[in-house]
Design a protein around this nucleic acid. Structure first.
Lengths: 346, 346
DNA sequence: AAAAAAAGTGTGTTCGAGCACATTTTTTGT
DNA sequence: ACAAAAAATGTGCTCGAACACACTTTTTTT
């Protein structure tokens, strides 16, 4: 029934040579109408699937995929991505694929553009990038487009018609998930949404989460809750956070929209008199440590490792196996507490 | 640097023929000490990785893998497994692998053994099975062992020295996760652990979850809570559950250790006066529906689809790529509420 | 020392797709 | 009608591992 047919089989059945079958399969022309019909007849009856192993053995073409990633030295948030990419390298090492990671400084658009230039000189077949900077991203994607280089993005969703594919998470929904958990922890009180980030590069990111978070409380129409937004930087947490807490004695929960929950937790740790529920993002070591100490209640797992892995692997499989690249892959919003955290840290 | 060396390359470098290199690589003997040393010298310098594509192209051996699975007709719990296996079939269809699913009636050890007989006649290279029945499982695994058929298990952990590998979840920990969530929902009160199952085949399964659940509350030493266990069957829920609720007016939470939370939820739905928190297992349609209605607070996702997929794929990759089969693969304990459920249903 | 056996080594084919090139057939131009 | 050009078709090699088999060298036996 499900016998595997080869080009040779088809040639035999149609009474032609495998060269002719090959020309039909690849629309290479130079085939007489008579031969074309005979072969098509056979193709309509059986269902032919080319042997991908044989194809990839023959092909000498080496595919080059470059990843444009913030240097984890500047922000450990990106560390899991390196592992995800490493997984992809291991998985596809048998094939003619070169996967290269190029780091840039997440605080510097210049660095971003400079690394982009380096990548251009490599003339890769595809690029996976974390589009931290909106304007610059649109710009460089235009360049890749002109050069016929395929582009995939992950982590940040950038609205641009030239971006065809994205791997990430629904940030709005993740904000809602955080809200639903906060609603469970707290019976009432004031909740602060805190955005901590050195630059504004994550602005959209954080706003989407805030929007989702607020939408939940607005929808549920809970009069016992109030939601406030606060923007902080690493340098001013130590002063501004205690001040904010003093000014808002009702404050009972904080939702941190970035991976910097540990910064809030360590500051709160010193203000021993307060019991405030914390919900943040990402299973970086410091966050997990505070989770285990009970100072952070929940973390939402953005699974950067898998994001990066999928970002690369969809590209690789596109080249090797002609698979379609999905427009958007949205990873599940994993809810992490102290009891299940160990299964997610990688 | 990371040039890919072929057998031919090695032969050239060592000054011998590829046949001799091949004999060394496969320990096939018939190699002079002199040649052996020359080749080993080369192998020590470079790092040779055989091209798996070429290897699999050549090999005409067809691997047959049988899956022994409860028929989803009897219990929709098993439906996702079918999809997971289908994914594996699609993924490996290019290779010489046949993956066959054989269903048995989960209520009948006879059916289990009969399907096992059918599988034996197929003389597969490996079997993946859901070891529902302890005694019978140990028995048939002995048979497979004698026939040199590799065995992998999933879903249920069976303690037997002859089982080498298992894909599943840490049930004890999943009970703890459920407890931690219950502790969050409820300030105090009585909690019932309800085991619903037609037969006792899941006894160990359910007990592990109970043990984990209780351990959490014992550890935290929460005097405001009490935990009771209740065993039900589908046929007596309608009578026994309302009776139990009447006898226990303090009852404020129920933890259902099987995928049958929907049966409790639909019964509670009719007892409108009570507000009881429900936590159960598995994203089957009826459970998700009650989750969306707000009658079930949390579901723990056991990810059967991925369990089945991994169960098959580790076997396939063992044969095709000589990968090791991990002794145990424990999937993460996913916490699902109404806000993130949509990302997990498949 | 010659014959026989054993040990060691090299060659050539296979798997299936892809493509270059050689060969055959058909069409066009004179 | 015949050569030349164009179109159609077939042949054969490649990729790398695996293995059968043929061949050569060394060792053992008589």
């Amino acid at each position: 029934m499900d016998k595997k047919y080869t080009i040779k089989d088809i040639a035999q059945m149609a009474g032609v040579s495998k060269g002719t079958v090959d020309r039909v399969l690849h629309n290479r022309g130079k085939v007489s109408p008579a031969a074309l019909e005979k072969i098509n007849e056979v193709l309509n009856v059986i269902d032919y699937e080319p042997n991908l192993i044989a194809r990839n053995l023959k092909s000498t073409k080496v595919y080059r995929i470059c990843v444009l990633l913030p240097d984890p030295v500047f922000d450990p948030y990106w560390l899991p991505c390196v592992n995800g990419i490493q997984d992809a390298i291991t998985e596809y090492k048998a094939y003619n694929v070169i996967i290269e990671t190029h780091y840039f400084n997440p605080e510097s658009t210049k660095s971003f553009l400079k690394v982009h230039e380096t990548i251009i000189t490599q003339s890769p077949d595809a690029v996976l990038l974390a589009p931290l900077f909106h304007k610059e991203t649109v710009e460089i994607i235009k360049q890749y487009d002109e050069l016929g280089i395929m582009v995939n993005t992950f982590n940040n969703q950038v609205e641009s018609s030239s971006i065809k594919s994205f791997v990430g998470q629904d940030l709005y929904k993740s904000g809602r998930v955080a809200a639903s958990l906060m609603n469970l922890i707290l019976p009432k009180g004031q909740i602060a949404i805190i955005h901590i980030d050195e630059s504004l590069k994550n602005a959209v990111h954080m706003q989407e989460k805030e929007r989702g978070f607020r939408s939940y409380f607005e929808e549920k129409n809970l009069p016992d809750f109030s939601v406030t937004t606060l923007k902080l930087k690493y340098s001013n947490i130590e002063t501004k956070l205690p001040a904010f807490i003093n000014e808002n004695p009702d404050l009972s929960g904080i939702f941190i929209t970035t991976s910097k929950a540990y910064q809030i937790a360590s500051t709160l740790f010193n203000l021993t008199d307060k019991k405030i529920a914390l919900i943040g993002y990402d299973l970086i070591d410091k966050n997990v440590s505070f989770l285990n100490q009970g100072l952070v209640h929940f973390l939402i797992h953005q699974n950067q490792k898998r994001q990066a892995y999928l970002g690369v692997s969809t590209l690789v499989e596109h080249f090797l196996f002609r698979k379609d690249i999905p427009e958007t892959i949205l990873l599940p919003i994993d809810i992490i507490n102290v009891e299940n955290a160990s299964f997610y840290v990688s």
